[in-house]
Design a protein around this nucleic acid. Structure first.
Lengths: 223, 223
DNA sequence: ATAACCTCGTTACTATAGTAATATGATTAT
DNA sequence: ATAATCATATTACTATAGTAACGAGGTTAT
């Protein structure tokens, strides 16, 4: 079975070359440069991955694992739910400061576009993401919160909302739509989702006629 | 001043043609078809908008207005904050069911990519979005909540988080990452941000040793 | 063992975004 | 009024993604 073997070798060679070049150029990486570094011609990409998007999708799926490794390191076991969610939030916000976060955003955008336009690649991508998301669910499941333990169902609901919130906020920060969204803001927004604290608690103002809040503000972290 | 006049006329002609064709083909719309329908050649696009992305960005900026008109219609005055936020959430979720929501997602992705790659277009886009976002802030400012009125600062914080959350959730729904995120879920997630309710309230399970929740669940809408 | 076949990568081609040089016609200065 | 200049669209070209026909060499059936 030498045929299958060379196929696999070529596949790997393309993915490895693509990783290097995509890390540098994002989704604008040129196919002939990738194929050249893999010792192949651009046609091989179409034979093995169907399209440039197919190659990038496979690459993305390959690198979701390390991505979630990093998240798990950022959210240590032993924290209760609120603390874990805050740690997650701060991790996400810090990643926006990474010098090549913009390239990451561009890649993410092209993945989104691929998913929107190519149902096949889209569902393959979605499957990878969902598979890895189980790790996120596991990361929250069982943590104490309000005297209870987080159930897998709760963790699932939470993971969906948190990923959405952070994805949206990161996009906002990087695209310049949300200039004020600092680490503190990420943490407060995330905490609002899980705890009884609202995003608004810290900035309330009385009605003109002046009855005070019924809810007292949660702890005000140091400015 | 006939020069400026024809320039403006050509600009409009390109935008009008682009609107038709982009509505059909998304960001894959072909430049020569757009230019052809405008009675111009593709070079005119580069002369007037600098690039295809420039044309699409201008188009997007043009159509943010109607977008926000629709939002304002979906969130009537007179609702308190929680109800307004829920209405907003449900509007956003319903838009995911639109038959050409996927084309919208693809366009949104390409705008994101443009913002990530071209600082100039990115900041122009961000400026348009922020300008229109003031309407969103105004939409929430002054509504009653917990016996107070929402301040502009609170509304700003809220608008940032809501847009991020809905953008992320919509992307998730359309890309197949968040299959369970129905209208109800959108509404609950949004409510969690503003009110004391947590996303987890409805799905709590007791600890093995069994102390109950300290917080009682908020109203459970009919299934 | 040999012939038919199938898989996969290459080569040559097409389509489209973008660039550079050019031409045309408006604006401005003399 | 006429010439110089500038702005803007066109034309011809380049670069790159994608397609289709082809061919080499591994695979399978007799």
């Amino acid at each position: 079975m030498k045929r299958e073997e060379t196929r696999e070798r070529n596949r790997r060679a393309l993915l490895d070359a693509a990783l290097r070049i995509v890390a540098r150029d994002g989704h604008q990486a040129r196919l002939d440069e990738i194929a050249g570094q893999a010792g192949l011609s651009t046609g091989a990409v179409y034979s093995l991955f169907g399209s440039k998007d197919g190659l990038l999708t496979a690459l993305a799926a390959d690198y979701l694992g390390p991505q979630y490794d990093e998240i798990e390191r950022a959210v240590p076991a032993g924290l209760d739910l609120v603390a874990a969610v805050e740690a997650f939030a701060r991790y996400y916000r810090r990643k926006c400061d990474d010098p090549d976060a913009l390239r990451g955003l561009s890649l993410q955008a092209s993945m989104l576009d691929t998913a929107a336009r190519d149902p096949d690649l889209g569902s393959r991508l979605a499957a990878s993401v969902r598979a890895h998301e189980e790790r996120l669910v596991a990361l929250f499941t069982g943590r104490p919160h309000n005297g209870n333990m987080v159930t897998p169902q709760q963790a699932q609901r939470l993971a969906t909302a948190l990923r959405a919130l952070f994805a949206g906020l990161s996009q906002g920060v990087l695209a310049g739509l949300a200039p004020g969204a600092d680490e503190q803001y990420f943490a407060e927004a995330a905490r609002a989702l899980v705890s009884g604290a609202s995003l608004l608690d810290q900035h309330a103002a009385p009605l003109p006629s002046g009855r005070r809040l019924t809810r007292r503000p949660t702890r005000r972290p140091p400015a």
